[in-house]
């Protein structure tokens, strides 16, 4: 009897553990959101975090964006030239960057570059009892430590994604027009004719904003919720990157279906 019910008990236990964690994550998020007025009162805290989260990621984003755009230009050219449609290269490169690759790849890189650092930093603060020390001094660590990091990530992601897309389009342009001899006018005019501001650019920005919220939320929560030991922090850092990647890819599908599914 007992051995028959054992698997169900394990399943139920893990389901309850996950639900409990999800509940904690949501309550934590509400708590972080209440720190928003405090950010407005102290923009210096936000600036310092935007430096470590945003400014230090710019070089990575620039280089990755350039190479992603260049690869898109090469691959797109080889496929499109079979149909005699290499003039559409601009549309292909720009649409795939602005709609999908810009927000998604930036979010994945952001999770690896900034998210893991946030988790490790907050986890270590917890392990060395800096967070409880702040509580002792009647300073709310969520408002003082977590909220600036969360909002810095939220603001930085769309900016980084825009830089990524723009650099990617330039990379595709260099490869397509400079290297492979696609007509410059056709590249630009077809791109401008097909890429719609409301449909493509605005939706891309919305996507990157959502991904920024998801990645930073997971990163700060995993750090705050980590087991305060060196092993616990290392596990939390791994989980932060893995969960962020899953969440971004899953939500990308949902958002794409909502945004572009109409026609």
């Amino acid at each position: 009897m007992n051995s028959v019910l054992k698997p169900f008990q394990i399943l139920g236990e893990s389901a309850l553990v996950s639900l409990r964690k999800l509940g904690r994550a949501n309550l934590f998020m509400l708590h972080v959101a209440t720190g928003f007025p405090g950010i407005l009162a102290r923009p210096r805290l936000l600036a310092a975090q935007m430096y470590s989260v945003g400014v230090l990621s710019v070089l990575l984003i620039l280089i990755s964006g350039l190479f992603v755009g260049m690869v898109l230009g090469l691959q797109g050219y080889y496929v499109l030239t079979d149909f005699g449609a290499e003039e559409s290269l601009g549309v292909m490169v720009a649409a795939s960057l602005v709609r999908e690759l810009g927000p998604v790849v930036t979010a994945l890189l952001f999770a690896g570059r900034a998210g893991s650092a946030l988790t490790a930093e907050i986890g270590l603060m917890k392990a060395t009892e800096q967070l409880s020390g702040m509580e002792m001094m009647a300073v709310d660590p969520v408002k003082r430590i977590i909220a600036p990091r969360f909002f810095a990530g939220l603001v930085s992601m769309p900016l980084l994604a825009a830089v990524f897309s723009l650099v990617g389009v330039l990379g595709g342009y260099f490869v397509g027009v400079g290297l492979l001899g696609v007509d410059e006018g056709a590249f630009r005019s077809q791109m401008q004719a097909k890429i719609d501001f409301d449909e493509d650019i605005v939706n891309g920005v919305i996507k990157s904003l959502v991904f920024g919220a998801i990645v930073t939320w997971i990163a700060v929560f995993e750090g705050y919720d980590s087991v305060p030991t060196s092993e616990g922090v290392s596990r939390a850092t791994t989980r932060s990157v893995v969960y962020a990647a899953f969440a971004v890819l899953g939500w990308d599908f949902v958002l794409t279906a909502l945004m572009f599914g109409k026609d």
Partner: peptide, 12 residues
């Protein structure tokens, strides 16, 4: 970058 995407890449 956002401004350039809007003006140069899209049809705005």
């Amino acid at each position: 970058a956002m401004f350039l995407l809007a003006m140069k890449v899209s049809n705005l």
